[in-house]
Design a protein around this nucleic acid. Structure first.
Lengths: 225, 225
DNA sequence: TCAAAAGTGTTTGTTATACACCCATGT
DNA sequence: ACATGGGTGTATAACAAACACTTTTGA
C-alpha cells in the first residue's frame, strides 16, 4: 500500500464521554504491541491533499467508529516523545455521548474502550500529557460555553448536568443554587416527560435550547457557570 | 547549505506589544516578495533534533532579535493555506514590551515593524486568521492570568494597566472600580516613585509582585478581571 | 415508613455598577 | 483658569452561598 501521508506528522484525538457519573476517554490498544499492555489515544496520519481537521475526523472514525466534530487544541513536538522516530502530533478533543456509538474494532487494533480519565494507566508516548492538556482546555471552555450538553443525552434531568460539571471541574455545587443559576439563563426547555425506572421521585427532563442560546449570544449574553 | 528541517512543517509567531495605548503585532516583510508589499508573521522551520518550543524561540530571535518565552496555541493546516506547497504551521504567541527590544534586520528580511493589530493589512497566506486566533486566546487568558504585566514596563501607573485591558478586551472600565478591584487583589506594589514629565498630576507607579502572586495561588487564589 | 432525590424559598454577606466629588500639575 | 488625569468615597442593585424545608416515589 502506497504511503500518501505527510511525514513526521501525526494526529491524536482525546474523546471524552460521560458515563455512570464518570468522565471517560476513548482509548485503543494496538496489535503492534502484542507483548505489551499499553493503551493509547486513537491517532493516525494526514494525507497530502487533506485539511488537518478532516484528517482528524477520518482517522478517528477509521479506528473507533466514532464520527464527531473535534476541536484542535495544540501540537506536541518534543524530540523524543516517540522514541523510535521524530513525530510531531496535532491533538484534538471532542465531547460525545458514549451510549450513541457502537465501538468498532479494526484489524489494527486489538481493543477499543472507555476509561475513567481520573484513573488512567501509563499510556503510549506522551499521551497522558496530551490528555492533561485536553482536560485543562475542556475545563476552561466548559465554564464559558454550553458545550457540556454534548456529553449528555438529548433529554436529561438537571442533576445529571450538575454531576457532569462537578466531575469535570472537580468541585461540588449546592443543588438549589446550581438549579436556579442554570434555569435563570433560559437555555433549557423543560419537557413534560419525566425520568422512568428510578427508585425515587422522578425528575423532569430538560433539553438544551440551541436556537435560544444563539439568539441570546447575538444580544451579548455570555454563558458563565 | 544542507536542509536539516522537518518537511511540510513551519512555525509562526504572533508577538504582541503595547505601545502608545495600542496593541501591536510584530511583522516582517521578506525580500522574496520584492515586487509585492506583503507583510507576514515571523516564522521558520523545525530541526529534526529540536523541540518545537525551542524552534519557535530560535526562529523568532533569528528573524527579529526578540528573545522571549512563547505559548503555543494551535496548528493551522488547511490544504491550500500556502498555495505553492503543503505546509502545516504551528503557531505561538508572546507578550513583550516593545521598548526593550532593538529590532534586527536579517538579510532575508527587508523590514521588521510593529503594526496595530486592529488595523492590519492583508497578510501573507492565512496569517490574518492566525492572528485572530492568537488574539482570542490572549483575551481568554488575560482575564484569568496576570499576563498583562508582560506588556508593560516594570513600573507603570494604574491607568496604563487599565488602558491595556481596555484595548485588548475591547471594552471600557470605570476608573474607580477598576482601581479598587485590582488593588484589592494585593498583587501590586505601590512605589514611592512617580510619573515624570506629564502635563497633569503625576501618578504613583506600581509594580507587579510575582512572588506574592505565586504565594496566593498556593492558597487557592485565582486572578479574575 | 424510610431512603433518596426532586424541587422551592429565604436569609445573609459580598460584589458589581454607577456616579459624585476633590486633588495636583503644566500650559 | 482649565484641561487632564489621579485618586477616594458611597448608594444601590445584583448575585453567590448556605441552608431549611416540603414533595414524590419505589422498595
Amino acid at each position: 500500500m502506497q504511503n500518501n501521508y505527510i511525514g513526521s506528522i501525526s494526529i491524536d484525538s482525546v474523546i471524552f464521554g460521560f458515563e455512570e457519573d464518570q468522565l471517560k476517554v476513548l482509548l485503543i490498544k494496538r496489535n503492534i504491541d502484542k507483548d505489551t499492555d499499553t493503551w493509547g489515544l486513537p491517532g493516525g496520519y494526514v494525507n497530502f491533499d487533506e485539511d488537518i481537521d478532516h484528517a482528524a475526523e477520518r482517522v478517528l472514525e477509521e479506528r473507533t467508529g466514532v464520527k464527531v466534530y473535534m476541536k484542535q487544541f495544540g501540537a506536541f513536538g518534543k524530540v523524543n516523545r516517540v522514541p523510535e522516530e521524530r513525530y510531531i502530533t496535532i491533538a484534538y478533543y471532542a465531547l460525545v455521548k458514549p451510549g450513541s456509538y457502537k465501538l468498532k474494532r479494526t484489524k489494527d487494533d486489538c481493543d477499543v474502550s472507555w476509561v475513567n480519565v481520573y484513573n488512567l494507566p501509563k499510556l503510549l508516548y506522551d499521551h497522558n500529557t496530551i490528555i492533561e492538556f485536553a482536560l485543562d482546555n475542556l475545563r476552561q471552555r466548559i465554564r464559558t460555553e454550553p458545550i457540556g450538553f454534548n456529553l449528555l443525552p438529548q433529554r436529561f434531568p438537571l442533576l445529571s448536568l450538575q454531576r457532569l460539571y462537578e466531575v469535570i471541574l472537580n468541585t461540588s455545587f449546592d443543588k438549589p443554587n446550581f438549579r436556579s443559576k442554570i434555569l435563570k439563563m433560559k437555555l433549557l426547555i423543560k419537557l413534560e416527560e419525566k425520568q422512568k425506572g428510578v427508585a425515587y421521585r422522578s425528575a423532569h427532563l430538560f433539553k438544551f435550547d440551541k436556537e435560544r442560546y444563539e439568539a441570546l449570544i447575538e444580544k451579548g449574553f455570555s454563558f458563565e457557570l
